[in-house]
């Protein structure tokens, strides 16, 4: 009897086990951070904060390392991917959740979920053999021809480029954004739609005045998941970005990302400083994704507090 009370009929050990699982997760994140930090000591001592803002990557002669081209490449390609994927992804979600009849919405939704499960190396192959020859170069030539006066569309035009990587990433994050946004829209109570329609709102007005504000925090979450995939994507980007230390602003030039330099050169890192410079890039990528997610979480909280508030019925 006393034992039963102490264990609270199993609730207490259950609580401990789940606490342990949660702590394990926290420990893993902390462990990764510590390992990256310790194993990049040589590089951090040698270059300090300049590592973040210099662009020489010379393992052969001077043994000098700077991460700026990779940071720039990662940020530019991910941003491009989001700019392209958000309108299409959210648009597709609106169609699936609000406009498409059931017989079309269900199979189409399944297809989108399948797309999210395609391995990235397959996307990479498709990017290499289809996207670059069919889209990136002709598109690049057209952009350079019409808007070449802008630094971001400066020539010469290459096939493998930041543009190609951004396009491919947008295709890859599209299903994530579309599928989650659709679920967010599905979860909005019908009474919200009816309330607006009954006041004489059109479908479009319901979507952009009622549903999008109501689901804002969820839609933001969908976008952040997409961004997470874009930031860390390695193999597909490596296959189409051209792997070049070019630091120009042009989307039409080849570039490099943090993930792809690590993947490309980790096995070739013949001396300790080289290896630790790569690990420091890993540390930066880790910190960057952590910061972006933290910022996104704050944004989601703010949106949620502003819209949902306290519900009493």
């Amino acid at each position: 009897m006393r034992m039963a009370r102490f264990w609270r009929h199993g609730d207490r050990p259950f609580g401990w086990i789940t606490l342990l699982a949660a702590l394990l997760l926290l420990g893993l994140v902390g462990g990764i951070a510590v390992a990256l930090w310790q194993n990049s000591a040589l590089s951090r001592d040698a270059f300090g904060l300049e590592f973040l803002v210099t662009s020489r990557w010379d393992p052969a002669i001077d043994r000098v390392f700077g991460a700026l081209p990779f940071i720039q490449g990662t940020l530019v390609t991910s941003a491009l991917a989001l700019v392209l994927a958000i309108p299409v992804g959210v648009g597709a979600a609106i169609f699936l959740a609000e406009l498409a009849p059931g017989w079309l919405s269900r199979p189409l939704g399944l297809l989108i979920e399948l797309l999210a499960a395609v391995p990235s190396v397959v996307y990479g192959l498709w990017g290499l053999f289809v996207l670059i020859p069919a889209v990136a170069k002709p598109l690049g030539v057209a952009l350079n021809g019409s808007l070449g006066f802008l630094p971001i569309f400066e020539g010469p035009v290459f096939g493998p480029s930041r543009l190609a990587a951004g396009l491919l990433l947008s295709v890859m994050v599209l299903p994530t954004i579309a599928a989650i946004s659709r679920d967010v829209l599905f979860a909005i109570p019908n009474s919200q739609r009816e309330g607006a329609l009954a006041l004489g709102a059109t479908h479009w007005e319901v979507v952009h005045q009622v549903l999008i504000p109501y689901g804002a925090s969820g839609l933001l979450g969908a976008i952040i998941l997409g961004l997470g995939r874009a930031l860390g994507e390695t193999i597909a980007v490596t296959m189409v970005i051209g792997n070049n230390l070019d630091l120009s602003a042009s989307l039409l030039h080849p570039g490099y990302t943090m993930a792809s330099i690590i993947a490309n050169e980790f096995t070739e890192a013949t001396f300790d400083l080289y290896l630790e410079a790569l690990i420091e890039i890993g540390l930066i990528l880790f910190a960057m994704t952590l910061l972006i997610n933290l910022f996104a979480q704050l944004l989601i909280w703010r949106v949620r507090r502003r819209t949902v508030g306290q519900v009493r019925v």
């Binding site: 109570p189 009474s191 919200q192 009816e194 309330g195 607006a196 329609l197 009954a198 006041l199 004489g200 009622v210 504000p213 109501y214 819209t307 949902v308 508030g309 019925v313």
Partner: peptide, 17 residues
Amino acid sequence: VRRRIGMVFQRPNPFPK
């Protein structure tokens, strides 16, 4: 039609505004 014939529903459904 909906502008001329308004409707109030079973459960209160204010917008989260």
